[in-house]
Simulated assay, not measured.
Amino acid sequence: MSNIKWAIDPTHSEITFKVKHLMITTVTGYFRKFDLEVETETDDFNTAKKIQFSADINSIDTGNEQRDAHLKSADFFDSEEEAHISFIGKSYKVSGDEGELSGDLTIRNITKPITLKVEYGGTIVDPYGQTKAGFTLAGKLSRKEFGLTWSAVTEAGSVVVSDEVKLNIEVQLIKQA
């Protein structure tokens, strides 16, 4: 029996990150171009054998071109050296509609383990006959652990950009024929 392949539906998915600015407000950023491949043994995602994700750093969008250019620079993601962020899933454990996805996240050629909380939204057949599955993922990481060490402090001593980055991901998968 061959594995079932699932591909991301980019028009019904979003990859966002949130970072504190001056420790008083939160800035949200998006990756506009990304890819996700999942393989399962059955329609049950507990049987996931392959979970591979990548995001195009040059598609970063925070609603401010100057900030986006800074994020793509060597101060942060250094998109000229490494154009993508990647995640390889190692284990998916589920209890009811909630679970945990653990794997290896690679940013700037630095790979670290990360665990994301997963909420399974369900599987449904859409009006076009496609089987779709929905998930919400959330987690956080220390940007400095991945070499995103740029920092600045205001005259009053406030940190400009927090170390903690919150991840919020909405994923809709399409079962491949």
Rank of each mutant, 00 (worst) to 15 (best):
V38I: 15
L22G: 02
S73Q: 07
L36T: 12
K117W: 00
T28W: 03
N168D: 15
D44W: 03
D75I: 10
V153Q: 15
T115I: 08
F77M: 06
I88L: 10
H84F: 11
E145M: 13
K90A: 13
V161Q: 04
T62A: 02
F17M: 04
D35I: 01
D97K: 15
G129N: 09
A69R: 13
I110Q: 13
G157K: 11
D78M: 10
T106I: 04
I4P: 01
T26L: 02
P113R: 05
D35L: 02
S91C: 01
L141M: 15
T111C: 07
L141A: 14
S142I: 11
R32W: 00
N109R: 14
A7W: 00
V38Y: 04
V153S: 11
I57N: 07
A152V: 02
I8C: 04
F135R: 08
F17H: 04
E14Q: 06
A74H: 11
G147K: 11
I174L: 13
K117G: 12
R32L: 10
K20I: 00
A177E: 12
G139Y: 09
T42N: 10
G29Y: 03
T26D: 05
F146E: 09
Y30I: 02
F87G: 09
D44N: 15
P113N: 12
E65I: 02
D56P: 00
S79M: 07
P10N: 08
V153L: 14
K93G: 11
N46F: 00
E82N: 15
K18T: 05
V125G: 01
F34N: 09
A177M: 05
V160A: 14
A69Y: 01
S79N: 12
F45N: 05
L105C: 09
V159M: 14
N168K: 14
Q172R: 11
K144W: 01
T28R: 05
R108N: 14
N109P: 01
T123N: 07
F135P: 07
E164D: 14
K93P: 01
I114G: 03
A7E: 11
D43G: 14
H21I: 05
E145K: 15
F53T: 09
E119I: 10
K93F: 03
G29A: 08
I24E: 01
L71P: 06
G121P: 02
I60F: 02
K117I: 02
E119N: 11
Q130P: 00
F87Y: 15
R143V: 10
K5S: 12
A138V: 12
G103M: 06
V165R: 07
V160Q: 09
V19N: 11
K33W: 00
I110R: 10
G96V: 09
H84R: 12
V165H: 07
Y128L: 13
L101T: 06
I4C: 00
V153N: 12
F87D: 09
R108I: 06
T62I: 02
E14G: 00
Y128F: 14
T26Q: 06
D9G: 03
E37Y: 01
L137C: 12
E14V: 00
Q52H: 10
L141N: 08
S95Q: 14
G63L: 03
N64G: 00
A83R: 15
K50L: 14
H84S: 13
